[in-house]
Nucleic acid binder design. Sequence first.
DNA 1: ACGATTGTTGCGAATCGTTCGCAAGAAATC
DNA 2: GATTTCTTGCGAACGATTCGCAACAATCGT
Lengths: 149, 149
Amino acid sequence: MPVARETLIERMRAKGVRLTEQRRVIAELLEEADEHLDAEAVYRRASGRDPRIHRATVYRTLNRLKKLGLVDELDLMHKESERHYYEIRPSVFHIHLVCMRCGRVLEPSGPFWDDLKRRVHDETGFRPEAARLEMGGRCAACHSKSDDR
Amino acid sequence: MPVARETLIERMRAKGVRLTEQRRVIAELLEEADEHLDAEAVYRRASGRDPRIHRATVYRTLNRLKKLGLVDELDLMHKESERHYYEIRPSVFHIHLVCMRCGRVLEPSGPFWDDLKRRVHDETGFRPEAARLEMGGRCAACHSKSDDR
DNA sequence: ACGATTGTTGCGAATCGTTCGCAAGAAATC
DNA sequence: GATTTCTTGCGAACGATTCGCAACAATCGT
């Protein structure tokens, strides 16, 4: 059973973000996203719901949410493109494993982040706030194939 | 005493990369780099040594080296810009900690990578080949300052 | 409920970083 | 040193993102 948590909109409100219709649409669509969306994909979905919404607004909103730590920006190892992808910052940190052969993205979660955060802080005094932990390699299925594509 | 290792040029030769003057210049300059260089910075330095060198050649070479796994591409949390930064792939993996206040970049090395690689593989079957592990946060010095810049 | 205030939007042009297509040139191979 | 194959310079084009500004909308105080 999924953990009940605050919606993105609630968290935006808590951060004092002025709630416009455009932002509501973008936030809802991020909540419902079934895959990693880049800015253009967000724009396309947003236009579907409110055709007046402008690309620049999408960029501005994503940047804002990123700065507030509500959304994380991913590169997914730039496998498919140079674009950035966005996801709501999850309650449990996960890492992104991108299979460079088939493109699948695995997202194991676990105490990676807590462990790393503690370790980094203990060893360097640095206080991590956000992290991007991505790996490229081969998923189990692709690894067993011997072609070197 | 630093560990003696192959130069980038030697490694390029070993990979069968055709050694042009341009590539030699770029490789040397990456070896000597004292900070993280983006493509434009590489281009500027390269032009200094051989004014005929073209920006496109710099991009092509960096991409090539990246694909061969000789050079790693970093974002440094996109703090300063959307550019990519390049560094020769070190013999000992390190992570990049970017202070979002003062911009300093710390690069602690340690068994992070080996530990993570093993753990990821054990838990998921994924075989990591390359990783980008960047964190944004506050360095020890900036953390002790209470302004919330 | 309303007006004042302040922040946000749409717009389309501009900017930034990067890649392209191609003819000329250079490295490696024979 | 001729042949093959890969690489380069060039400048235009590209894709992603940001800009500047006037119109507009959310919020706050009354």
